[in-house]
Amino acid sequence: MKTGTSSVPFDPTHVTQLSWRPRAFIYKGFLSSDECDHLITLAKDKLEKSMVADNESGKSVESEVRTSSGMFLQKAQDEVVADIEARIAAWTFLPVENGESIQILHYEHGQKYEPHFDYFHDKANQQLGGHRIATVLMYLSDVESGGETVFPNAEGRLSQVQDESWSACAKNGFAVKPRKGDALLFFSLHPDATTDTASLHGSCPVIKGEKWSATKWIHVRSFDRSKRLNRRAAMGECVDENENCAGGAKAGNAKRILPTWWVLEEKEL
């Protein structure tokens, strides 16, 4: 139930382009204050140490490059979450089923996430909906000092004007300050589906206060369908993407699910 939490209508006039390399956009007031507080409430008692994907195995492992705590909501967990997921799909033009569940993150004093890519280096994760095309990072709280999102390889890293209110970490690239309710959208792939090294990004250490954020990762094809197929394959079932399935892929029934506005090279999927 919404329990009185107000929903924000999608309004593209609130979007500003920040960079073309990487392609990055900020949406001022993407979430209402009530929505931010609601997401924090859903997560507060369920936080665990954040993990990273191992580049070789693709498995989630602990690492000092990421010192926050977090948890994943369920898709459409309640009406508020479902509204936010639909708003993200409307903004990005990417289907809801291509997205992972929203991850809520909490950063306390000194906690950070070193610069990294959201696309994958291992084949295991690429099987689950392909590479991540885009990331929507929603800021659920203001941060007194630090906590900026920084892009060390961005084209605007040398031209952005930064005063003393920016942290030393933020001055290592093009940076975005966390503002409650704002959302940052950036793309990890070029329009031709090649990976964009300019999308390298990190979360600067929190210097004063705390930082709450919510992340939605979006893939090139249905993440939900890929997870279902993987579960069925793990149980020994024959699925239509398996070339050994009688009447399946050999009959041409295996189809990749892609956003219609993305033209992707087969080798990248």
Score class of each variant (00 low, 15 high):
Pro12Lys: 10
Thr16Gln: 14
Trp20Gly: 11
Trp20Pro: 02
Ile26Glu: 06
Lys28Glu: 13
Phe30Met: 06
Phe30Ile: 05
Cys36Ser: 09
Leu39Asp: 04
Ile40Leu: 01
Ile40Val: 15
Leu42Ala: 09
Leu42Val: 05
Lys44Leu: 12
Lys44Phe: 08
Glu48Thr: 15
Lys49His: 12
Met51Pro: 00
Ala53Pro: 01
Glu56Ile: 15
Gly58Ile: 06
Ser63Asp: 12
Val65Asp: 07
Ser69Ile: 10
Gly70Ser: 15
Met71Arg: 03
Met71Trp: 00
Leu73Pro: 04
Leu73Ile: 02
Ala76Ile: 01
Gln77Met: 06
Ala86Val: 02
Ala89Phe: 06
Leu94Val: 01
Leu94Lys: 02
Glu97Pro: 07
Asn98Ile: 05
Glu100His: 12
Ile104Ser: 02
Leu105Met: 07
His106Ser: 13
Tyr107Ser: 09
Tyr107Phe: 10
Glu108Ala: 15
His109Ile: 13
Gly110Gln: 13
Tyr113Pro: 03
Glu114Ser: 14
Pro115Trp: 11
His116Asn: 09
Gln127Val: 00
Leu128Trp: 04
Met138Trp: 10
Ser141Pro: 08
Ser145Lys: 15
Ser145Cys: 08
Gly146Thr: 09
Val150Pro: 02
Asn153Cys: 08
Glu155Ile: 14
Ser159Tyr: 08
Gln160Lys: 11
Gln162Asp: 12
Val176Ser: 01
Pro178Ile: 09
Pro178Thr: 10
Arg179Val: 13
Leu185Lys: 01
Ser188Cys: 11
Pro191Gly: 07
Asp192Glu: 07
Thr194Pro: 01
Thr197Pro: 02
Ser203Leu: 09
Ser203Phe: 06
Pro205Met: 15
Ser213Val: 08
Ala214Tyr: 04
Ala214Trp: 01
Trp217Gln: 02
His219Met: 08
Arg221Tyr: 06
Arg221Gly: 13
Asp224Ile: 03
Asp224His: 03
Asp224Cys: 10
Leu229Gln: 02
Glu237Pro: 00
Val239Thr: 13
Gly248Lys: 12
Asn253Asp: 10
Asn253Phe: 15
Lys255Met: 15
Ile257Thr: 13
Leu258Thr: 08
Lys267Asp: 14
